[in-house]
Design a protein around this nucleic acid. Structure first.
Lengths: 325, 325
DNA sequence: TTGTAAGCGTTATCAT
DNA sequence: ATGATAACGCTTACAA
């Protein structure tokens, strides 16, 4: 910066003002131009680290997550990344593998870098143990929550998701709609079932408890659960699966019985794992988890720490319509 | 740091030496201990940015990639992340969406942060246009290459992959082995075919050109290509698919004809997309792309800039054995 | 409209 | 074995 100042015969201060675009300070158009030219000629590139040191603003946001390894919800990284970029901030991403020890030392390292806020994001909707240092800076949880619900969080609207999937099937004329839910007790399980029930209730359809089953979130789980449902004396005409993987298994059970999708039986999945949903035959109608939006929302919340709009944000995922209904 | 020094009644210099664990400087065990205690008591945390400014080492590595949005190869981020962490370095990740303009400004921003090296990584094995500034710092390409092959790169061993998949089928006793390859001209297509042919040649199996077809890298593409193959008067007894998605389609074509996997026909995929390969029924034997290893290797190459072991690294992916052979 | 000078929190070179 | 002191590259009162 000294070189630039010397090159144009002005002070470092003036150069700094011009480079930072401080329009509140009056500087002749001519000086501005000459400075930018010099910057160009000399190939000067401001040292962001030095700027941070002097200005006490690092424009750095930390993201500690267990999702880098998984095909699930890379969207969170993506959404957060984008939002941060738009705000002129950079994300420091550390993959914790879900290990609290790593999470703690990761945060320690990030605090050393003077991040201005941190996001903890998880692959599955679950409880998380936060390192003590988290209380030192603005923290937002994505797809997870702490014991005390003390930290701001961004969560998917499981109820709305359960409702949307069920509603779609009702609209298609189905009345015997089964739900193959995830393992009991999970927030996702509870929420989606509530949505399912409210959609049925709203449509005046009485709930047949035999149509409400649970299974493991795998293709095999879906295969078995769907098989059982189809072998009922009064089988369902539509199946809402807790995950796309389960739907994948359900497809097999259905095809094995010579039934056709969606003519004989409709299927809706959950997760919108494009790789499954988009390539199953027929393609799968499914409820998306709003990963991108959640990541972006988290960054926004950090940016708005001074004027927080809400402490706990619930984001609904859209129903992605394909060919299985 | 001044506070710590004052607290123990020593100079800032001494504190700095102790904190950086400089054993080349003689400092009494007693002083060391007192300093660490003071650090603890005062909750002192060194400012990494200030350290970087003074030491001229940022320990920052940039990663510019188009894969954050995709379920593909999040492994690159993961592997690179891990390797960097082990070296005490942090990754600055920017998602470029594959847009050269974004890539260029991303690099510009990262250079402002004084990264010590940059990695460009892509989702698919392809050519890439590098920003001019890339020549200013150590650069490594992962899963991609520049026109002039001027930059160090880490690439998957497509030939070994083609060989491994084919070899597995030969070992299972197959002699009529079809290859549904990707679109012609891609590096992956060329390499895998070479591997396929060399495995067959090695086993003394003459190559039947009718068994060598190409298709789009989708389930539909695989479905059609597999269908055509199965309708040949002398159909193959094994199919090696260019992607797991294609294998997914091939499964459908096979099942549609009442054939059983692997009893009647064996299938091998490529990519090891766990979400497909692990959950197809039967689970899919497939060649993995070594994303994790490639990401880690790239970081290693940057760390070894002074004593580069090799300019272009080829990493083989393992054959993941499941139940389709 | 521009310049002076005091930080920002470290490291590193010399002395002592 | 420890301490002054000058960088590192920038921002920002305050003066002029």
């Amino acid at each position: 910066m000294d070189d630039v100042a010397r090159h144009v015969g002005l002070s470092r201060t003036t150069v700094s003002f011009v480079i930072n675009g401080r329009m509140d300070i009056q500087i002749s158009e001519k000086s501005r131009q000459r400075i930018w030219d010099a910057v160009d000629v000399l190939g000067y590139r401001p040292n962001t680290g030095a700027q941070s040191l002097a200005s006490q603003r690092t424009n750095l946001i930390g993201l500690i997550t267990d999702i880098t390894s998984s095909p699930f919800g890379g969207g969170i990284i993506h959404g957060a990344q984008q939002a941060a970029w738009d705000l002129g901030k950079l994300m420091l991403i550390v993959s914790s593998e879900g290990d609290p020890v790593v999470e703690s030392s990761a945060l320690e390292m990030l605090l050393g870098r003077r991040i201005e806020g941190v996001i903890f994001a998880t692959q599955s909707h679950r409880r998380i143990e936060l390192p003590a240092s988290a209380s030192e800076i603005p923290t937002v949880l994505v797809h997870c929550f702490d014991d005390a619900h003390a930290f701001p969080s961004v969560l998917p609207d499981e109820i709305a998701g359960g409702y949307a999937g069920t509603r779609r099937l009702i609209e298609a004329g189905h009345t015997r709609i089964a739900l193959i839910n995830l393992d009991p007790g999970l927030p996702a399980t509870v929420g989606r079932q509530a949505g399912y029930q409210s959609a049925l209730a709203e449509a005046g359809i009485t709930i047949d408890p035999r149509l409400l089953v649970t299974g493991h979130a795998t293709a095999t789980g879906g295969f078995q659960a769907a098989g059982d449902l189809l072998d009922l004396d009064q089988p369902p005409t539509a199946i809402f699966c807790g995950t796309d993987r389960m739907a994948m298994g359900a497809y097999d059970a259905i095809k094995e019985r010579g039934l056709r999708i969606p003519a004989d039986i409709a299927v809706v999945g959950y997760d919108n794992q494009e790789i499954i949903a988009g390539f199953l035959r027929p393609t799968l109608t499914t409820v998306a988890l709003p990963f991108d939006a959640m990541g972006a929302a988290a960054v926004q919340m950090l940016a708005d720490v001074d004027s927080p709009r809400s402490q706990h944000l619930i984001v609904a995922g859209p129903l992605i319509e394909r060919d299985s209904v």
